[in-house]
Amino acid sequence: MDDSGSVVAFWTLAALTVGSALMVVAVRNLVHAVVYLILSFVGVAGIFVLLSADFLAVAQVLIYAGAIPVLIIFAIMLTPRAARDNAETSLGLPALPLVGALLATIISIAVVTDWPEATRGGFEETTSVIGEALLSTYVLPFEIASVLLLAAMLGAIILVRED
């Protein structure tokens, strides 16, 4: 594939991702915010495709564009109607310096770091590599994460049990 094509695709996807991420915090309607969030996630998935990380891209769509918004939608639908718009909140002021500091850190890192250039092509097959890595090198974190999720699920069930 042409380099120019990749560049155009990258900038389009980046604009989509960042633009919809901005819209998530800008729009007042929470459901609209969720829709923009999905768009943003789809943009990230596109960037994964560009990096020829096909498994990650599809997993991104499956989990972040498909499943996470559903949870958010449930959360919105289960809250009383009064809280369904992105109202002004007094926490905005203290959040501002925090976000500013975070942004400054990210920008400075991006500028200061000496980014290495990729010297090889894309992977032929990522799925089996990821699978093997998860079950050999990173088996401990993988298991810890699954136990954590199980505990969280049990906790949620116990919280809402009526008896």
Binding site: M77, L78, P80, R81, L159, V160, E162
Partner: peptide
């Protein structure tokens, strides 16, 4: 803790 939604 019982989860209650708005009556609808």
């Amino acid at each position: 803790m019982a989860m209650k939604t708005e009556p609808f």
